[in-house]
């Protein structure tokens, strides 16, 4: 009879790390929780100002948005809302793709589409927030913010 040497770890010996370097999955997990705490405050404020105070959804038009985005406070508020929420949502969708898509090829395509759409929307949203002109030249004065006439 042939025998083979088998090494058996003693029970309860600590798990040996097989991979070195940064554990990206761990940082993703932590990001979901940290961004979540900030998002509670940011989204609550966003809904309060846009849907509850004033006339709610019926007050929203170009002039309303222009009045907000002319103020650096709301520019940075919306900037953090955009980046925290979209990256949180995209990372959550990545988890869900990993859970339900078994074929490596399909997975790669979906991950690629997710990454591309996230990049495009972050760039577009950031551009809109910081290059926005509340008083566009030649616009119908009835549609733009009341303070435009003073400029």
């Amino acid at each position: 009879m042939t025998t083979t040497d088998v090494t058996i770890d003693s029970p309860r010996s600590p798990h040996a790390r097989t991979r070195r370097g940064i554990n990206l999955e761990k940082w993703g997990w932590l990001y979901m929780r940290i961004s979540g705490v900030f998002l509670v405050a940011l989204i609550f404020g966003h809904l309060l100002v846009n849907l509850v105070l004033g006339e709610g959804v019926s007050q929203i038009d170009f002039g309303f948005v222009a009045g907000k985005l002319a103020d650096p406070f709301w520019q940075w508020y919306d900037f953090f809302l955009l980046w925290l929420a979209l990256i949180h949502g995209a990372n959550g969708m990545r988890t869900i793709i990993n859970d339900y898509v078994a074929k490596p090829q399909v997975r790669r395509i979906l991950h690629g589409a997710l990454l591309a759409s996230t990049g495009v929307l972050l760039a577009l949203g950031t551009l809109v927030i910081f290059t926005f002109d509340p008083c566009p030249a030649g616009a119908d004065p009835a549609l733009i913010a009341s303070f435009c006439g003073d400029l």
């Binding site: 170009f62 948005v65 290059t131 566009p136």
Partner: peptide, 22 residues
């Protein structure tokens, strides 16, 4: 998540024209 995708696009219309956004 899917609403957020649409919402970023509809808000981006403020950069196009007041009429388009409204």
């Amino acid at each position: 998540y899917f609403f957020l995708l649409v919402h970023i696009l509809d808000t981006a219309l403020v950069r196009v024209s007041p009429e388009a956004y409204n």
